[in-house]
Every structure is written in C-alpha cells, then in structure tokens.
C-alpha cells in the first residue's frame, strides 16, 4: 500500500516537473515569438495542472506519514503488550514458528517430568505401605517369639526391625528429593514466559529493521532476524526426544 502511494507521489512530481518545463518553453515563445491568445490559455492550463499535481503529491505524502505513524503506534503497543503480541500479531512468521517449536519442546519436557513424578509417587507410596506392613508383622512375630522364650528368633527380629526403621528414614529423605518435579515445572513455566517476552522483543526489532531500511513490507530475504531464525531451524531440525510420556519404548528386532 505504502509502496503504491510512493509511486504515485513520484509520478505526480515527475509529471509536474515535465509540465513546468513545457510551460516555461511556451512562456518563452509567448514573450519572444508570437504571443497568441491560444498560447496564453495553454500556459494558464499548464500552471493549473502543475498546481494540481503538486497538491496530489502532498496528499500522498500525508497518507504515507499517517501510515508510518500508525505502524509506530503498533510497535509501541507491541512493546508494552509483551508476550500476548506473539499470538496476536505474528508479523514475522519465522520467529513465531521457531519460538512456538521451542515452547512445544518445553511442554513436552514438562509432560515427561510430570509423568516421571507421578510414577515415582505411586512407587513411593507402595514401598511405604510394604514397609509399614513388614514392621507390623515383625512386631507381631516378636511378641509370639518372646512368649516362647526363643532368644535367637527375637534377636533376628530386632535386626529386622532396625532395618525397617532405616528404610523409613531413607523414605523420609526421599520426600525432599521427590519435590524436584514441582521445582522443574515452575522453572519451565518461567522459561516459557521469558520466551514469550523474547518473541515480542524480536518482533519489535524486526519491524524497526524494516522501517530503517525504508522497506514498508516484510521482505524475508533482507531481514536478518528471519535469516538467522531459518539458519537456527536448519541446525536444530531433528528432535532428540520424541516421547510424550514415560511408557516403555518400542523394541525393534532386526
């Protein structure tokens, strides 16, 4: 749209220039050779044409300024809108797509961590139940053995009881480590929000870059950010992990 307006402006100015030269020549002939009424009228029409063309060029210039102002306002808004911008106005598709892929991978990592933690918690609960059952059995057998005055069995059961206590202590320590899932998920969410901010900043720089080059349309070939993004995409084409959960992997026999 702006390129079209610019062309109109240039054409109007060129035409005005041409008519001005023609008028000057007519005026010269009017003064020096044969000043007819027809020539005088021709000069007046030419002057009117020049004025019209100049006015037209001025209108086109105003329209261009207004469009650039609108674009500036959009950029300002983009800066303040932050992460929301990426989804609202993906002006540079390369950046938007690249960052969306990174976010997908973060989501995948979150899913894997959640699955791992869920499985660990289930296993943890089961081990705890078994430990409690074992302790109860040992206590019961110990009572029975004591009544029969079986010293050797009581000794063994006490050792067993000590082991059960050790397992319980280890389980208590595991409680601290088991909280890693929550911490990792929160960090992943924070990273995702930072990527959103980075996306909006990149989009803004991209727009500024276009304006500075005075090219009022997205031209991916001369856009350095797009070029860099495409290059990064080519380097990271293969995903090292495709699994979405922690189910057992496939087995291929050759």
């Amino acid at each position: 749209m702006i390129i079209f307006d610019k062309k109109k402006k240039r054409m109007s100015l060129a035409l005005a220039g041409g008519v001005l030269v023609f008028t000057g020549f007519q005026f010269y002939r009017f003064l020096t050779v044969d000043g007819s009424i027809l020539q005088a009228m021709s000069i007046m029409i030419s002057i009117a044409l020049i004025v019209m063309l100049l006015k037209l060029s001025k209108t086109v210039y105003k329209s261009e300024i207004s469009t650039c102002r609108q674009r500036d306002e959009m950029n300002e808004n983009a800066f303040y809108e932050g992460s929301a911008l990426v989804s609202k106005i993906p002006r540079n598709n390369e950046i938007a797509e690249y960052l969306a892929n990174i976010k997908d991978e973060l989501g995948q990592a979150e899913q894997l961590v959640n699955d791992a933690v869920t499985n660990l918690v289930v296993n943890f609960g089961y081990i705890r139940e078994l430990t409690n059952s074992q302790r109860d059995i040992v206590l019961t057998v110990e009572k029975m053995a004591m009544s029969d005055d079986n010293a050797e069995v009581v000794k063994l059961l006490r050792r067993q009881m000590m082991m059960a206590k050790k397992i319980e202590q280890e389980l208590a320590t595991t409680v601290t480590s088991m909280q890693f899932g929550d911490l990792v998920v929160q960090l992943l969410k924070h990273t995702e929000s930072q990527i959103n901010t980075l996306g909006s900043v990149l989009q803004r720089i991209d727009q500024q870059n276009i304006q500075e080059r005075n090219i009022c349309q997205a031209d991916d070939e001369c856009n350095e950010i797009s070029y860099a993004t495409i290059k990064m995409k080519k380097i990271n084409q293969t995903r090292p992990v495709l699994q979405q959960g922690l189910q057992s992997g496939e087995v291929d026999l050759f």
Partner: peptide, 15 residues
C-alpha cells in the same frame, strides 16, 4: 493446599 499433586502427596505422607 498445593496445585502440584506430588507435593500434596509428600506433605500428606509426612503429616
């Protein structure tokens, strides 16, 4: 109170 199921379970286990 926690939105993380694993944390809730660890807290519940402890308590």
């Amino acid at each position: 109170v926690d939105d993380s199921a694993s944390i809730r379970q660890m807290v519940a286990f402890t308590l």
